[in-house]
Each structure stands twice: as structure tokens, then as C-alpha cells.
């Protein structure tokens, strides 16, 4: 199983690529809605990217209340 830091790094890389920002624009504890300026539908795009990348299913109710990359990585690691 990948460690949490590795998952965080991969999430940030995917998010930066998808939303076309520099990789160093985002940090593990950033509120990704605010930092990336995204809405809920765009968050679903990120969710799909993550599911495809990590080859898991992450039901969207697992995303409720999650706004930072670190917590998101934790939710993903619980499914791997």
C-alpha cells in the first residue's frame, strides 16, 4: 500500500495537471475548492481522475466534508 505522503503527492500532481496550475501552487493542507477556484462539478472531475488513477471506487459520500488534499489522501488510502 502506498504511504499517505506518496498519495498526497500524486493527488496534487493530478489536480495541478487537471486544473492547469503549477504543481507548487498547491499544498497538502490547502482547501482545494478555494486554492483551485473550483465548484462541486469540477470536484467530481477530480474524483473521477483519482478513481481512474488509483484504480479504486471512491463513493462521493466519502468526499463529504473533505476539502484538503491530506484528508482526501487518507480517504483514498482506506480504499486501497
Amino acid at each position: 500500500m502506498a504511504d499517505t505522503q506518496q498519495i498526497i503527492d500524486e493527488i496534487q500532481k493530478l489536480a495541478a495537471e487537471h486544473f492547469k496550475v503549477a504543481p507548487d501552487h498547491v499544498a497538502p493542507d490547502d482547501d482545494f475548492f478555494q486554492k483551485l477556484g473550483i465548484d462541486s462539478l469540477q470536484a467530481l472531475e477530480l474524483l473521477t481522475r483519482l478513481e481512474n488513477h488509483f484504480n479504486i471506487e471512491l463513493p462521493d459520500y466519502e468526499m463529504q466534508g473533505v476539502v484538503d488534499f491530506r484528508t482526501l489522501a487518507d480517504r483514498i488510502s482506506q480504499r486501497m
Partner: peptide, 8 residues
């Protein structure tokens, strides 16, 4: 104003 209004 929930960041996930489309999600149940």
C-alpha cells in the same frame, strides 16, 4: 453554500 451541492 455546501461545496458539494450536487452530492447526496
Amino acid at each position: 453554500e455546501d461545496p458539494y451541492p450536487y452530492l447526496p
